[in-house]
């Protein structure tokens, strides 16, 4: 045992330059990512009203979360719905858009890329959906429907429980074309053309086969990155909903875990409980990411 430690230390001393290089990132990562996660795990076992010292309550928060809090269950349900639709949906959308755009000539390509990427650069651009779906009779969609004679009264898209979830899904899909999409475009362009020639000689007959047997396997690292990004963002949906449909949404129909977290953290100042929610979200996200990675690795094999 002792020998082993000694050996490790020896190895570390040998490659101290590498450790030195890693150090700045590792220090920052520890302070700003690892530590908060650990603290949140600790806080989730306490009752903490933000301004006074936390008191230890054991697993009470988790008990309340899973057994008593029906709104949390709505949150989990909505988050999973959004996760399932937006994760793969957004991901496929990224892939397909990237593939199509890749076929364009360079100049048009960079323009269209900008067009598609714009929603995620420009922060709160999704607010324009607020005007589109506004419940005012001058809201674009309501205005159009009234003019065409489909309705007489404006539909309260953003307050009516029947419409909130579909609106949220549309807007989130639109915003999900983010970094993942950009990295895929880059990857498409990075694929060596000689592979296609070699593939053609080896008997690839159409573009679909080209995509499936050459492009996608070449794209795997970017695809995993993209998948992680889209799942993470799908689970993090919350701010968009608040910005468009208000907070909280009517009868919590589009309440996500993220919304629930903000609710307890900033409105009710129950940080212990909010930490418990965060921990659950954390676990959920990690397991989905693992699953996604395994699934993508199996493509094209």
């Amino acid at each position: 045992m002792r020998n082993k430690t000694k050996y490790t230390l020896q190895r570390m001393r040998k490659s101290k330059v590498s450790y030195l290089f890693v150090a700045p990132y590792m220090i920052l990562f520890t302070i700003f990512t690892v530590l908060p996660v650990v603290i949140a795990m600790f806080l989730s076992l306490t009752s903490f009203n933000v301004l006074q010292m936390p008191t230890f309550v054991g697993l009470e928060n988790y008990g309340r979360l899973f057994l008593k809090d029906s709104v949390f269950m709505t949150g989990v349900k909505n988050t999973l719905i959004l996760g399932v639709i937006l994760g793969p949906g957004g991901y496929l959308l990224s892939l397909i858009c990237a593939w199509f755009i890749n076929e364009l000539t360079p100049k048009i390509r960079s323009f269209v890329t900008l067009l598609f990427y714009a929603p995620s650069i420009s922060g709160n651009a999704y607010l324009i959906w607020g005007i589109l779906f506004s419940g005012d009779d001058y809201g674009y969609i309501n205005g159009l429907l009234i003019r065409l004679g489909f309705i007489n009264e404006p539909i309260q898209f953003l307050q009516n429980t029947d419409y909130i979830m579909p609106v949220v899904i549309i807007v989130s899909l639109w915003t999900s074309l983010g970094t993942g999409f950009l990295s895929m475009i880059a990857a498409f362009q990075g694929v060596d053309k000689t592979y296609f020639e070699a593939g053609a000689i080896d008997g690839i007959r159409n573009r679909w086969q080209e995509l499936w047997y050459i492009t996608i396997p070449m794209l795997k690292p970017q695809m995993i990155f993209s998948a992680v990004m889209s799942i993470t963002s799908a689970f993090n949906v919350g701010a968009v909903i608040t910005a468009i449909c208000g907070y909280p949404t009517t009868d919590y129909v589009a309440h996500t875990i993220m919304n629930h977290l903000t609710d307890y953290g900033t409105t009710r100042f129950e940080m212990g409980y909010a930490s418990a929610i965060a921990v659950v979200l954390f676990v959920l996200m990690i397991s989905f990411n693992q699953f996604a990675k395994r699934f993508i690795s199996s493509i094209g094999k």
């Binding site: 009264e153 309260q156 307050q159 009516n160 429980t161 029947d162 208000g246 909280p248 009517t250 009868d251 409105t267 009710r268």
Partner: peptide
């Protein structure tokens, strides 16, 4: 007391949108 707003909004939205 923050719950008051929530209750009133929910109840109003259900009444209003339901009345369609």
């Amino acid at each position: 007391g923050y719950y008051l707003d929530r209750v009133l909004t929910f109840a109003f939205n259900r009444t209003y949108n339901g009345s369609e």
